[in-house]
Write a protein that binds this DNA or RNA. Structure first.
Lengths: 320, 320
DNA sequence: TTGAAAGCGTTACCAT
DNA sequence: ATGGTAACGCTTTCAA
């Protein structure tokens, strides 16, 4: 039994077993159609070749490419995902910790989620700006993103730029806003309070963007450009502007964020700041795998991996 | 140990344990912050409170609501998903069987996937028309869908209707096409071979729909309506028609399928045949849960659960 | 180089 | 009503 275990699980101690015996073992396993019981192995080793993934919801546009990137990478390495959604509810987040512990996940990837816990296992976050000890954070270069965005609009002649901030519960809202403020200061753009609105509802649709834009139009109509928190809300903004008799991009230039799949298909095609969502998922997964396979020392210490945004110009964003 | 196991796992045999003892056990568990080890339980019981889910890919529009419905329902019942994607590759599908067996999933849900295997565990398929023994199939009422679609177009005066069939590898392509043929016969609509094209590329984007429509336009321009295999390809079709100088819906009425989230946001807003994707995910999951909890007899026998489509009229599909 | 045996943390079968 | 104990199928240590 010992020899069989060592050979079939590819243990380094198998090197001291003669080739002939190994052959016999492989042959027998093949003939008997032997499959090791992963549950027994997991129980014994205390690990499960699985990775916990937590994300607010399985939503269109944003979550999909990240999850796809994570799934591809992990399943190619023989890991499965223990995927949980929390819908921004604190008690579900707390339960997630239990579930991950029960299932003995070997690592955790948190997407767009402020983890209330950090365990002794490798932990990687995606788009969670608040860094915690022993966690690797994969974050977008928000300063660069804001600079790309405002430079684009500024270069086209826009000076009165409205902003739609993210929902209060969204983990990136604050850092993004701060970056926008810094970039605006750089370009000498004034962000007037009545030209700033915030997404409110917890819906992954364009509805919150529509409502925020309605509110914006009620309190200010003197902006010539609008920078939305994400593409989904930018689409809602375009609808609201259109309903208010304003043309996009002729009257108002709308700039989105994320570059979701539908951004290029939407009419008017959405100019946007691209986040490499799929790549971020892949990066999160490969980072986890590296930590799982590598030297334990690599796990410790807070690390930041910065991902670069890109300006995608689609509908010609005309100068006013 | 025995008493503790019985009480904490809610075994029916725990009824013969006096309330006082049960209290003591609960109190101690609480105080010691005891969490049962799921791996050990799974090893012993041969089940893992997990459900295998296999789907071609984590794609926008189609997969997302189904997966969300499955995830919600299963995780509310304490199950986790073992989610695999196969990208229409046969060898990956075969490996999936291995992985599900290794992980000792308690049931399997296959979405839009022709399973090459049926095990002894409850198995539910979503949108897989070919029925196999001991599998519950959740399928759309395709005849009704085709009837809704063609009646809608017919009533608007359309007689020359082009069709975009699904990819050859898509599990619903054939059954959908057969239903369309029957409905067309009913209404006395002739489906001319040069007005029928098929999606080819294995991409979850609107690209295949665009290409198919280009091909269609090369071989026929005498159609006044176009019925696409799904919304994603309908969007591609609208782009291709537009690029060819045709207006939608003025020159050509385009009818989609699925009613994905962006169908109502797209301009022109997409008229479409709605599949209740989210509900289908929920239904698949509840069916699995019922079979897992219920009498084993319920598992046997092939069952079909028919889901009804709905016509969603958005852009006014004008009579030619 | 190989084998025996001790667990991993449960559950379930028997006794009491 | 309770408790002892043998599995479940593997890995790993220790001896041979």
């Amino acid at each position: 039994m010992a020899a069989i275990s060592r050979v079939l699980s590819g243990s380094p101690t198998a090197r001291s077993i003669p080739a002939a015996t190994q052959e016999r073992i492989f042959a027998a396993a093949q003939q008997l159609n032997y499959r090791p019981n992963l549950l027994a192995r997991s129980l014994r080793q205390g690990r499960s070749t699985s990775v916990g993934v937590i994300i607010p919801e399985i939503s269109e546009g944003y979550a999909t490419p990240i999850l796809a990137g994570i799934e591809e990478t992990l399943s190619a390495a023989g890991y499965i995902l223990v995927m949980l959604t929390h819908h921004h509810r604190a008690e579900v987040l707390a339960r997630a910790q239990q579930i991950f512990a029960e299932r003995a996940v070997d690592a955790i990837i948190a997407v767009d989620t402020a983890l209330p816990f950090v365990g002794p296992i490798p932990t990687v976050t995606v788009s969670c700006p608040d860094s915690r000890p022993n966690v690797t954070n994969i974050v977008l270069n928000h300063d660069r993103a804001a600079e790309l965005a405002l430079h684009h609009l500024y270069a086209l002649g826009h000076r009165e730029i409205a902003i739609i901030k993210g929902q209060p519960f969204s983990s990136e809202t604050e850092v993004r806003w701060n970056a926008i403020e810094r970039a605006a200061a750089c370009f000498g753009i004034a962000l007037r309070p009545n030209q700033v609105v915030q997404l409110e509802e917890d819906l992954p649709t364009s509805e919150p963007g529509y409502r925020a834009t309605r509110k914006l139009l009620d309190q200010a109509r003197d902006f010539s450009a609008l920078f939305a928190f994400n593409d989904v809300s930018a689409i809602g903004a375009v609808m609201a502007l259109h309903d208010a008799g304003l043309r996009v991009p002729n009257d108002v230039s709308v700039l989105g964020f994320d570059d979701i799949a539908f951004a290029g298909v939407h009419r008017p095609a959405l100019t946007t700041i691209r986040q490499p969502l799929h790549e971020m998922g892949v990066l999160a997964a490969t980072t986890v795998l590296k930590q799982l396979g590598g030297i334990p020392d690599l796990r410790s210490g807070t690390q930041r991996m910065i991902v670069e945004p890109e300006l995608i110009v689609r509908s010609s964003t005309l100068k006013r």
